[in-house]
Design a protein around this nucleic acid. Structure first.
Lengths: 63, 63
DNA sequence: ACATTATGTCAATGACACTTTACATAAACA
DNA sequence: TGTTTATGTAAAGTGTCATTGACATAATGT
């Protein structure tokens, strides 16, 4: 899976730590998702989707 | 997370085993997701979404 | 009565999601 | 120079996702 997290975060000028806080996950988790180490769980994907007010499909895509 | 898998499957008159085949997962995995034992991974959610030609949000919802 | 199909569930196992703690590097800045 | 902020990464631990194999039950059909 690919994702646009890094871009969406940059558009808002947020640090990984700030995003992690809003999602209630660790900074390392945000970093791991951005750097493609693993995919978020479905519940976390929904949380990310809600935070950016975008559909899951607008943020994540099969690679 | 809740999901509409059972209904979508019923609409097509598919068995859990038939759905599992199409998704390349075990029958137990389909059963576990339907009975709420756990949520699918994000890649599997995308696969399910593609199979039913529905958005992830139309199939899964936070509970 | 017997076999088949569909569903639910259990145990054991391996892989992945996420955590905390920690260390390294580069950029910005007083 | 020394400090702070942002990012990347690593190790170790916990819990979840998904697997195979197996067993039980109910419904259908022969």
């Amino acid at each position: 899976m690919k994702n646009r997290l890094k871009v969406l975060r940059a558009e808002r000028d947020w640090s990984q730590a700030h995003l992690a806080d809003q999602l209630d996950v660790s900074r390392q988790t945000v970093n791991a998702i951005e750097t493609g180490k693993y995919d978020p769980s479905l519940p976390l994907a929904f949380k990310i989707s809600a935070l950016f007010a975008l559909s899951i499909e607008e943020i994540f895509m099969p690679d």
